[in-house]
């Protein structure tokens, strides 16, 4: 079904274009006198809104323990295949041996990352967080691949409300006897 749109009948003045052109000139001239909206970037810095998705980083908990347990869900979910995790075991003599698993290597290729935040959303340990860093540049492809150390350096600590891994070590602490 076709829809006929009625055209407004233009008056003579309108058909000369002149009032419209003058109107346009007025608008642009008024705009010229307004203050600028451009941010003079390196001199002025933008205020980032909460929830801003900058570079993904790895964070530690309040005790300085690395939160990541290398479950590789971020690697799985990453639509641009930017993340590469090499899982590894925590040494048996470590204070955190009961957590068992930690990344041996963790690389995020910032040339591939599209800052979608899916890794943060999928992370069961809240270990990978997109923080405020947005100005990423480098002189080689290699330096744009961030390794574990760089990711933790960029991430810092981010304590959790729920202390998932601070748990009782034996049934005696629970005052539960053996049957």
């Amino acid at each position: 079904m076709s829809i006929t749109v009625d055209r407004k009948k233009l008056s003579f003045l309108e058909r000369t274009y002149i009032p419209q052109i003058i109107g346009g000139l007025y608008i642009t001239f008024r705009n010229m006198l307004k203050s600028k909206v451009t941010l003079s970037y390196p001199d002025q810095r933008p205020t980032l809104p909460p929830g801003y998705r900058g570079a993904p980083t790895l964070v530690k908990d309040g005790d300085g323990r690395e939160k990541c347990v290398s479950c590789q869900l971020c690697e799985f979910i990453c639509p641009s295949k930017a993340i590469r995790v090499t899982p590894g075991a925590i040494k048996a003599d470590s204070k955190y041996a009961f957590i068992e698993k930690a990344p041996q290597a963790f690389e995020i290729n910032m040339l591939r990352c599209i800052f979608c935040g899916m890794c943060q959303e999928v992370c069961p340990e809240k270990a990978i967080v997109l923080q405020n860093e947005f100005s990423l540049a480098g002189f080689s492809r290699e330096e744009m691949v961030r390794d574990k150390a760089a990711l933790y350096a960029a991430g810092g600590t981010m304590p959790d409300k729920i202390k998932k891994w601070s748990r009782v070590k034996s049934n005696e602490e629970l005052e539960r006897g053996e049957h």
Partner: peptide, 9 residues
């Protein structure tokens, strides 16, 4: 095979 690779990969 422990901690080598997740099965879904």
């Amino acid at each position: 095979f422990r901690f080598k690779m997740r099965t879904w990969f």
